[in-house]
């Protein structure tokens, strides 16, 4: 699924620490997922309007993200606010990074370019514990087929636990599976590790299958 088509899972919330940024790719579109020091997540096109540098290579300062190349700083609305080479310049409103809608639900950061799309809903869930995001060199459809998912997100039962599986299309032959544990008991480390190992085994199985194919 592309960002224009609906809400796409782009990271585990726990993987994007406050004051940091990460790059991601959704169906070929490069995005930057970043969290300001106040804790709010942002998803933007991963391109500085100045020279096209990926903003995910840059750094977060408060509620601004700065480009690594020339330090141009953008506020939470994507508006350029400061150009170090012209410290006294009132920065033109036209220097703006395209933003995506962003939401956090079930321990996952979601993004979309669609104004209408409804956020995925699998009912109220409590005691969510992150497992991991695992990148797999195979089509998203193959991941969904292996897990028996109808859409990009589904609750699955695995070795006695309920998990949420959300699949991100990265490229035609690359996907990312985001996995969180639901109804986690206090101190869920053993179960988190168990399912993280399961995800590694799944990656091996799917990649071996796609090599054979």
């Amino acid at each position: 699924m592309r960002l224009e088509e609906g809400w796409v899972p782009v990271a585990l919330s726990s993987s994007i620490e406050a004051g940091t940024s990460a790059g991601a790719v959704v169906a070929g579109s490069e995005i930057v997922v970043w969290r300001d020091t106040g804790g709010t997540a942002h998803v933007w096109e991963d391109r500085c309007p100045h020279r096209g540098m990926r903003l995910s290579f840059g750094f977060v300062r408060g509620d601004h993200i700065a480009c690594l190349y020339h330090g141009w700083q953008y506020d939470a609305a994507g508006q350029c606010r400061y150009i170090p080479a012209h410290p006294n310049l009132d920065v033109p409103q036209t220097i703006k990074v395209p933003l995506y809608r962003v939401a956090e639900r079930y321990g996952i950061v979601w993004a979309t370019a669609s104004a209408q799309a409804l956020l995925p809903d699998v009912g109220a869930q409590t005691d969510i514990a992150p497992v991991r995001s695992v990148t797999i060199d195979c089509p998203a459809a193959a991941v969904r087929a292996e897990l028996g998912l109808e859409g990009p997100i589904s609750v699955i039962t695995l070795d006695g636990d309920r998990l949420l599986a959300a699949v991100q299309t990265v490229a035609p032959a690359r996907s990312c599976l985001h996995l969180v544990l639901l109804d986690a008991a206090p101190g869920p480390v053993a179960r988190q590790k168990h399912h993280a190992r399961w995800a590694q085994a799944l990656r091996f199985r799917l990649e071996t299958a796609s090599e054979v194919a």
Binding site: A11, L12, S15, E17, T20, A22, G23, A24, V25, F57, F59, L68, R132, S133, T135, V170, C176
Partner: peptide, 30 residues
């Protein structure tokens, strides 16, 4: 890219914060 390695992204931030850390060309100094 670093996209596919979330645990390593977290780890390199810890390394960068170590006392005495230095950069080299290709590893930006924020």
């Amino acid at each position: 890219d670093h996209d596919a390695f979330p645990a390593l992204r977290r780890w390199i931030r810890r390394v960068r914060a170590l006392d005495g850390f230095i950069t080299m060309p290709g590893i930006p100094d924020y």
